[in-house]
Amino acid sequence: MIRIVIIILTCLMLSGCVQQRILDQVQSVHSVAFDYVDDDSVKGTLTMPKFNPDKTVDISVFQKVSPSNESFRLSANSASPKAITSGQARVALFGQELAENGVVHTINTLYRDPSVGTRLYLAVTEGKAGKFLEKSYPLADSPSLYISDLIKQNINGDNLPRTDLHYFVNQYYDPFQDPFLPLLKLSEDKVNVVGLAIFDGYKYVGKINMHQAYVFKSMLHDSDSGKYPIKFGDYSRPNTAVVETLESKRKRKVKMTSGTPVFDITIKIRGKINENIKDINLKDPKTIKKVEKEMEDSVKKNGLNMLKVLQEKHVDPLGFGSDLKHQVRGIDSSEWRDELYSRAQFNIHVKVNIVQTGITE
């Protein structure tokens, strides 16, 4: 019995030593950025933690130009003293120029890499993506934590719809829907989410701002987050109220009328106003009704304008083609994209119910 215990303890000690040696021999990627060089090459930027003897952690930045159809991690390994692993990667960024030329090879290498999780956040950047990882941010220990937490917070508490590597790939391979990603902008020592980057296949073709992103999210899926500013009052003394969504539910129906798809979109929003507005009595039910009506009209107007732009760009990130496919037999993706989508009609019905108001002295 004693011999068995000794053998087990010895194995545990040896396995611990082996594991320590393995950890000492690898470098974990926490974030990656890709920028366009030419049609055959991309410049990759990696951030990796460097653990110091005094238990502090520095962020190492590694950059390399590699063929666009080659795994950047494998390419980077050829120039790194330690094996690079991607299992802890939180975010991947694509520079605007690369996104405009297409991210097909980059996405495929990420998706085929078994060490990369499908919940990896993706985003397009205004300007060079590598610049976002070269900076330090006062609100986080590393660029990867800062940017991934920023995207997560904007999904869970603001106007971004759900998105990650898994969603993007599924949208791309769905012939009736186009992908979208968060759009980021660098401003001194902080990053702002400024809207959604809309793709036609794997190419970035346009954007919508965060105001429109609220409407986009409300049309795409049910939600319990989002903020929408409303201007009301007379033009000489306009007021702005920010309505925070408590619950948003949507229903979409489609029918064919004389060969034209007609979509009915119903959005029901329960919300609250967290702060009082100067010279406006939010205790007055008539005032609340005015805010509700103004928001209903604004969401409808912004939604119709946004859909018109998407139709003009021949992109369908909201997946209306999928609705039609499930409702009408025999519709194929070519017919939807080449003929039906451009002449589709949309009716938007919005009902807003403000159930809470914040009153301050």
Rank of each mutant, 00 (worst) to 15 (best):
I6T: 10
I7M: 12
I8H: 02
I8C: 14
I8F: 10
T10H: 00
C11G: 11
C11S: 14
L12E: 05
M13F: 12
M13A: 15
S15A: 15
Q20K: 07
D24T: 04
D24N: 15
Q25Y: 00
V26D: 05
Q27L: 14
S31H: 01
A33P: 01
D38M: 03
N52S: 13
K55W: 05
V57G: 07
D58M: 08
S60N: 10
F62N: 08
K64P: 00
K64F: 07
S66D: 03
P67D: 08
E70T: 14
F72N: 08
L74I: 11
N77G: 13
S78D: 11
A79H: 08
T85I: 14
G87W: 00
A92P: 03
F94C: 07
Q96L: 08
L98K: 01
V103Q: 02
V104E: 13
T109C: 09
T109W: 01
R112K: 13
R112V: 12
R112M: 14
D113W: 06
G117Y: 02
Y121F: 15
A123N: 08
V124C: 01
T125L: 05
S136N: 11
I147S: 07
D149T: 09
N154K: 12
I155W: 02
L160C: 03
L160V: 04
Y167H: 12
Y172S: 03
F176G: 06
F176M: 12
L181Y: 01
P182H: 06
K185L: 12
L186Q: 09
E188V: 10
V191R: 04
N192M: 10
G195S: 06
I198D: 00
Y202D: 15
Y204R: 09
G206Q: 03
G206C: 01
I208C: 04
N209D: 15
A213H: 02
V215W: 02
V215D: 04
M219P: 09
L220I: 09
D222F: 04
D224A: 09
P229N: 06
I230L: 09
F232Y: 04
F232K: 04
G233H: 03
Y235T: 13
N239Y: 10
T240Q: 09
V243R: 00
V243T: 12
T245W: 00
E247A: 13
E247L: 15
S248T: 12
K249Y: 00
R250V: 15
T260F: 04
P261W: 04
I269Y: 02
R270V: 11
I273L: 11
I273E: 07
I273T: 03
N274R: 13
N276W: 00
K286Y: 06
K289H: 09
V291K: 03
E292T: 10
D297R: 13
S298N: 13
S298P: 04
K301Y: 07
K308C: 03
V309N: 03
K313I: 05
K313P: 00
D316Q: 07
L318I: 12
G321T: 10
S322G: 13
S322T: 14
S333H: 11
W336M: 12
D338M: 07
L340Q: 05
Y341D: 05
V350M: 05
V350P: 05
N353H: 08
I354H: 03
T357G: 04
G358S: 08
T360D: 11
